[in-house]
Simulated assay, not measured.
Amino acid sequence: MLTHPQFDPVALSLGPLKVHWYGLMYLAAFLQFWCLGRYRILHHAQLSASGWTVRQLDDLLFYGVLGVIVGGRLGEVLFYQPGYYLDHPAEVLAIWRGGMSFHGGFLGVLVAMGLYARKIGRTWFEITDFIAPLVPLGLATGRIGNFINGELWGRVADPSLPWAMVFPWVDNLPRHPSQLYQASLEGVALFVVLWLYSTRARPRGAVSGVFLIGYGSLRWLAEYFRSPDDGILGLSFTVSMGQWLSLPMILCGLLLVVLAHRQRI
């Protein structure tokens, strides 16, 4: 069995200033978003022909950062640990310790993209189709940040599993390194699917729909390897909170793909 390396969450200390690995992972996520977005604008004739510019990408990144941080933290507070943060309100702002909900960040980004779409006169789905392939690798870096922080550890695993890992501060049982599973599935695998799918012209809304289906399905699968939470309203019925929140993503994604190909969007 492997043992978690128990990384120091602080990557760099400069006097009173401490740079945390978790923050660096988010910085890496935003940087890869910009680099991939720039590549798409410069190398995809359809995007450049529709008027996308690197300047707009810069603005999108700014709006997206706000949506991810505000929505992700509020999602963690409201969806997953409302009782804890009600008792410790000062820790709501301590994002360097981890604790960012994907589904909350996703909703925050949707709101931010809606505001930006209104500002520049594009449709909401034009924006989401453009950014969908740029998101998964950022999700992967976020999960690596979870692994470095030693949070969101997995369920107990068979000791014979070659990569079973002990998280000493939890217990001495072998567990799935579920953070790395999610980095591989929701991050790398989803990126490959979306990047390849979006290289050809697709009906408006189709790429966004495939993102919803892909993320929702892969997150549903990954939840079977994460330590279970209490589910929605404390009632799991063997379905975790992450799965409850992913179910509407899958259903909306299926509907979106159907409507896109019928040109109803």
Rank of each mutant, 00 (worst) to 15 (best):
H4M: 14
F7R: 03
L12D: 09
L12C: 06
G15W: 06
L17E: 01
G23W: 03
G23R: 09
L24Y: 15
L24C: 09
Y26F: 14
L31Q: 09
W34V: 13
C35I: 15
G37W: 01
G37R: 01
Y39T: 07
Y39V: 03
Y39G: 03
H43S: 11
H43D: 00
H44T: 00
H44K: 08
S50M: 02
S50G: 12
W52M: 05
R55A: 14
D58P: 02
F62L: 14
Y63D: 04
Y63V: 07
L66H: 11
V68F: 08
G71T: 08
L74M: 14
G75M: 09
V77A: 07
F79S: 03
F79G: 02
P82V: 11
P82E: 10
G83T: 11
Y84D: 06
L86V: 07
P89M: 11
P89N: 09
P89E: 11
L93E: 05
L93D: 01
I95A: 09
W96T: 01
R97G: 00
M100L: 15
G105D: 04
G108E: 08
G108D: 11
G108I: 05
V109Y: 09
M113T: 10
M113N: 06
K119H: 14
K119D: 09
G121T: 05
R122V: 11
R122Q: 11
T123D: 15
F125W: 13
P136Y: 06
L137E: 00
L137P: 01
R143F: 09
F147N: 01
L152W: 08
R155D: 08
V156Y: 11
V156H: 12
D158K: 12
P159Q: 15
A164C: 14
F167C: 05
V170C: 13
V170P: 04
Q182Y: 03
Q182L: 06
A183T: 07
A183P: 07
L190Y: 12
V192T: 14
S198F: 04
T199L: 13
A201W: 09
A206Y: 06
A206L: 00
F211Q: 02
L212Y: 01
I213D: 05
G216F: 01
R219K: 00
A222E: 07
Y224Q: 00
F225P: 00
R226W: 09
P228K: 03
L235F: 15
S236G: 07
F237V: 06
M241Q: 05
V257P: 00
Q263K: 14
R264H: 13
